[in-house]
Simulated scan of single mutants.
Amino acid sequence: INMEEIREFAKNFKIRRLSLGLTQTQVGQAMTATEGPAYSQSAISRFEKLDITPKSAQKLKPVLEKWLNEAELRNQEGQQNLMEFVGGEPSKKRKRRTSFTPQAIEALNAYFEKNPLPTGQEITEMAKELNYDREVVRVWFSNRRQTLKNT
């Protein structure tokens, strides 16, 4: 198994995938449709990070290579062709992860010390005060309670 060759391909695969504007999920879904269910988003991710066994990487490389060449060919024929090949519309985008300011974390922790289970109204007020979405604050409290439970 030539790991250097596989390492080089994994790096190029990611660059070429991104240049086509495709997500790991889209590649996984498209490959599952043509090659079978062994090609999930996480399989693509692990391959790109080389977080798999050399034997798995060796088996995956030719399949990914063939698929990517076909995708690039379709893209040269037009973006419409590529999207048909990949499987139509890309799935709904996930919301970006929220980054809290240190001040917001301090305030949220202070609220949490007083009351780990705020009412909907209290969450709405905190969200307004801190300038975050209400849902983000609600989830922060939920995650914080879970963290406390797990420690």
Rank of each mutant, 00 (worst) to 15 (best):
residue 122 E to F: 00
residue 48 E to F: 06
residue 18 L to I: 03
residue 15 I to C: 04
residue 146 Q to Y: 13
residue 105 I to N: 12
residue 102 P to E: 07
residue 58 Q to M: 09
residue 96 R to F: 03
residue 56 S to K: 14
residue 16 R to G: 03
residue 110 A to N: 11
residue 60 L to H: 14
residue 35 E to R: 08
residue 21 G to H: 05
residue 135 E to F: 08
residue 94 R to P: 07
residue 3 M to G: 04
residue 113 E to G: 00
residue 45 S to P: 04
residue 67 W to L: 03
residue 128 K to N: 15
residue 9 F to C: 12
residue 78 G to I: 02
residue 68 L to F: 13
residue 117 L to R: 11
residue 118 P to M: 03
residue 141 F to L: 00
residue 63 V to R: 08
residue 5 E to F: 07
residue 122 E to L: 06
residue 144 R to L: 04
residue 116 P to Q: 05
residue 119 T to M: 01
residue 132 Y to C: 03
residue 52 I to A: 03
residue 36 G to N: 08
residue 97 R to M: 09
residue 121 Q to W: 09
residue 82 L to M: 02
residue 91 S to I: 01
residue 40 S to R: 01
residue 137 V to K: 00
residue 143 N to M: 07
residue 134 R to H: 13
residue 83 M to P: 05
residue 105 I to T: 13
residue 43 A to F: 03
residue 47 F to A: 06
residue 66 K to D: 12
residue 73 L to R: 13
residue 65 E to A: 04
residue 46 R to P: 02
residue 92 K to W: 00
residue 84 E to I: 08
residue 57 A to V: 10
residue 21 G to I: 14
residue 118 P to Q: 11
residue 111 Y to L: 13
residue 98 T to H: 05
residue 28 G to V: 03
residue 126 M to E: 06
residue 114 K to D: 11
residue 91 S to P: 02
residue 121 Q to H: 09
residue 43 A to V: 08
residue 13 F to C: 13
residue 87 G to S: 02
residue 147 T to A: 13
residue 138 R to F: 13
residue 5 E to Q: 08
residue 56 S to V: 07
residue 77 E to G: 14
residue 56 S to L: 05
residue 96 R to Q: 05
residue 50 L to E: 15
residue 35 E to C: 14
residue 106 E to R: 10
residue 63 V to H: 09
residue 128 K to Y: 11
residue 148 L to T: 10
residue 16 R to N: 01
residue 139 V to C: 02
residue 119 T to S: 15
residue 6 I to W: 04
residue 81 N to L: 10
residue 147 T to G: 11
residue 129 E to T: 10
residue 36 G to A: 06
residue 39 Y to E: 00
residue 80 Q to H: 14
residue 90 P to G: 04
residue 114 K to E: 07
residue 119 T to N: 12
residue 81 N to K: 11
residue 66 K to Q: 14
residue 7 R to F: 15
residue 131 N to H: 14
residue 136 V to C: 02
residue 100 F to E: 07
residue 117 L to A: 13
residue 96 R to C: 07
residue 36 G to C: 09
residue 44 I to M: 02
residue 140 W to G: 06
residue 19 S to E: 02
residue 113 E to A: 05
residue 54 P to S: 02
residue 74 R to H: 15
residue 23 T to G: 05
residue 93 K to C: 01
residue 66 K to H: 11
residue 57 A to M: 08
residue 73 L to Q: 09
residue 11 K to C: 08
residue 29 Q to C: 03
residue 130 L to T: 12
residue 46 R to I: 02
residue 87 G to A: 05
residue 138 R to T: 10
residue 123 I to G: 01
residue 98 T to M: 10
residue 51 D to W: 10
residue 52 I to G: 09
residue 117 L to H: 12
residue 142 S to R: 04
residue 51 D to C: 04
residue 11 K to A: 11
residue 20 L to S: 09
residue 138 R to K: 13
residue 54 P to N: 05
residue 15 I to M: 03
residue 126 M to L: 15
residue 108 L to Y: 07
residue 39 Y to I: 01
residue 108 L to M: 10
residue 72 E to P: 08
residue 6 I to Y: 11
residue 49 K to V: 05
residue 150 N to I: 00
residue 1 I to R: 14
residue 119 T to Y: 11
residue 37 P to H: 15
residue 85 F to V: 04
residue 37 P to N: 13
residue 93 K to D: 15
residue 83 M to A: 14
residue 121 Q to L: 13
residue 43 A to I: 12
